[in-house]
Write a protein that binds this DNA or RNA. Structure first.
Lengths: 139, 139
DNA sequence: CCCTCAGTTTAGAATAATTCTATTATAATA
DNA sequence: TATTATAATAGAATTATTCTAAACTGAGGG
C-alpha cells in the first residue's frame, strides 16, 4: 500500500514527508469520512509532534490535486473523502454517520428554464438525509 | 406586510419584539439567501444596538419552527432561506450567488439496495454548481 | 553520496463564525 | 397595570480553520 502511494506521488510535485505518508495511509480506502480532527488524532499516534496546520495543509493540497473531496453535508464541520470520483452522500440525522452513494443521477436532474437562463450548471451533489440502522434500532 | 407577519406569530409562542419584526420584514420574500451577517448589517440600520446574538437566536428560533431553512451550499458560512418549502439550490462558483430551484426530483432519486439496507432515507437536497450569467459575461 | 533549496512542518497567534453567560429589558397575558 | 416568562444585550468563550515566521527536510543535481 505504501509503495502504491509513493508511486502515485513521487516526482509529481508533491513532497512526500512521513506526516503526509501517514495521512495518505490513513485515508487510503477510508470510507468513514473523517474530519480534520479525526485525521489529526490518528496521525498523532505515530507522529506525536504533528500540528493541526499540517493536516489542513495536506488535505488542502490533496483537494487541490483532485485526490480528495471536501464533504459539506455536515453543517458542523467539513469531512473528507479520499474517493475523488463524483458521488453523493447520506447522513444519519441522529448520529451523523455518512454513507456514500455511487449513482449518477445527472440525467434526471434537468433544471428549469429560468435557472438555465441565469446559470450555466457544471455539477451537482446530493445530500440525502436519513436514519441509520444503528440509530433506528437503538430507539 | 407587517400585519401579515404579526398575525402569523402573535399568540404562537413567539414573542414579537421590534428586532424580531425587523428581521422578519427583511426576510419576508427575500430570495437573496442572506448570511447572519447580512441580516445583522441590515437590522442595525434601524436598530443600531442590536447584537449578533439576537440575530442568531432569532434565526435559530425560526429554523426550529420550520419557518426558515439553513442553506449549507456555501462551505464558508450558513445562508438563510425564508421559503420553508423543500427545494434545491444552485451556487455560482465564481461569485457565490445562490439561486432557488423549485423542482421535486425525489421520484428519480432511488437509492441503491446497499444504502437502503443501512439507512432509512427521510429527505434530500441538491447542491447544483454553476456559473451565473454575470460572471460568465464578465469573463 | 551529499548539497542545496523549494516546499513542508511546527507552535502559536490570528481570524471568523457561532454560541454562551449573566444581566437588563420588555412583550404578552392576566 | 403588574407579573413573568421570554428576549436583548455586551462581551467573553468556543470551535473550526488559516496565517506567520522560523526551523526542518525530501529529492533532484552534481
Amino acid at each position: 500500500m505504501v509503495r502504491k502511494i509513493i508511486d502515485r506521488y513521487k516526482g509529481k510535485g508533491f513532497k512526500l514527508t512521513p506526516q503526509r505518508l501517514a495521512i495518505l495511509k490513513f485515508l487510503e480506502g477510508n470510507t468513514d469520512h473523517p474530519t480534520a480532527e479525526d485525521i489529526f488524532i490518528e496521525i498523532k499516534k505515530k507522529h506525536p509532534t504533528v500540528s493541526f496546520a499540517t493536516v489542513y495543509n495536506t488535505v488542502q493540497a490533496l483537494r487541490d490535486r483532485g485526490d480528495l473531496l471536501e464533504v459539506t453535508i455536515d453543517p458542523e464541520r467539513k469531512h473528507f473523502d479520499p474517493n475523488p470520483s463524483p458521488h453523493h452522500h447520506i447522513i444519519c440525522t441522529a448520529c451523523g454517520k455518512i454513507g456514500d452513494i455511487f449513482v449518477d443521477y445527472s440525467a434526471a436532474l434537468t433544471l428549469p428554464e429560468e435557472t438555465i437562463k441565469e446559470f450555466t450548471p457544471t455539477g451537482n451533489h446530493i445530500d440525502f438525509h436519513g436514519v441509520c440502522r444503528d440509530c433506528s434500532t437503538k430507539q
